[in-house]
């Protein structure tokens, strides 16, 4: 026969075990104490950039030089005044406004005859170079042949270009005409990863969507925000295989100071 004291002891023991189990469970699956990220790289074009305009500073009205590059042989054009002008071979240097989404057109893609892709580019922030060096340091957006092929096959490519934190750089030798990129998993936000590695500057979105433009609203071209023509910057000849090399491993995340 179990006395009342023993019953009470058993009840306290069971309660203590449950409490300890819940404590371990909470420690193992507690939410990460990181910052809250209300934005996501998969949001519609223009959503994240328009919110950056609200932060103030000399961002509105500044034409940030941008360099869009595709493999040798392809042509790039940007939507301007409701139409695509003649494409530039391989490299296009334009000044874009922050926060406004831009529609680009890539044609004559090597290995994909007759295929046309229409990626979008959205600038999130600007650079502050010394006077006279604005066009020497554009924001590079380099597309590889692999990405163009995957986009033509139906994949959706999202790339967040970020300015690397100089106090915690990835120790590899970079070339001016080659942009490193890291692949993240399907459940990770590239905008969040880019923010942890540096300062997000632009978002590129590219799929196989074809234009079905509403001529009244110009929605496909986002009403053609103004662009600024920039003289091409002197580039060095870099082999194509170097432009397409990827670093698969994700670097360690964290700032030293």
């Amino acid at each position: 026969m179990i006395s009342s004291f023993q019953k009470l002891t058993i009840a306290f023991t069971v309660l203590a075990v449950f409490t300890g189990a819940n404590s371990l469970h909470a420690q193992q699956f507690r939410p990460a104490p990181n910052a809250h990220y209300p934005n996501h790289a998969l949001m519609p074009p223009g959503h994240v950039g328009s919110q950056m305009l609200l932060r103030g500073g000399p961002i509105p009205g500044y034409f940030q030089p941008t360099q869009v590059r595709c493999p040798q042989g392809g042509k790039i054009a940007v939507a301007n005044e409701g139409k695509f002008v003649a494409g530039q071979p391989s490299t296009l240097n334009v000044g874009l406004l922050i926060g406004s989404p831009y529609r680009f057109k890539i044609t004559e893609i090597p290995g994909l005859p007759g295929t046309e892709l229409f990626p979008t580019v959205e600038l999130l922030d600007r650079l502050h170079p010394p006077a006279g060096l604005e066009t020497r340091f554009p924001i590079p957006i380099h597309l590889t042949a692999q990405e163009l092929r995957m986009a033509a096959e139906g994949m959706f490519i999202t790339r967040v270009i970020y300015l690397e934190d100089p106090t915690n750089p990835v120790v590899v030798q970079d070339d001016a005409n080659r942009q490193r990129f890291f692949d993240v998993r399907f459940n990770e936000d590239p905008l969040r990863v880019a923010d942890q590695l540096g300062r997000p500057m632009a978002i590129l979105r590219m799929g196989s969507k074809q234009p079905r433009m509403d001529r009244q609203t110009g929605r496909f071209m986002f009403s053609s925000p103004p662009v600024r023509t920039i003289m091409p910057v002197k580039q060095s000849n870099v082999p194509e295989d170097q432009l397409q090399r990827a670093i698969i491993s994700t670097p360690s995340i964290g700032r030293l100071r």
């Binding site: 010394p130 924001i139 270009i161 970020y162 490193r180 459940n187």
Partner: peptide
């Protein structure tokens, strides 16, 4: 020394991968 350096984070999505994302 003014020397900004850029890199990018890439994510590739397909139809099957969207299903996994909803599950997570």
């Amino acid at each position: 020394i003014y020397a900004p350096r850029f890199a990018s984070i890439r994510r590739i999505d397909g139809l099957n991968q969207y299903r996994h994302q909803d599950h997570v």
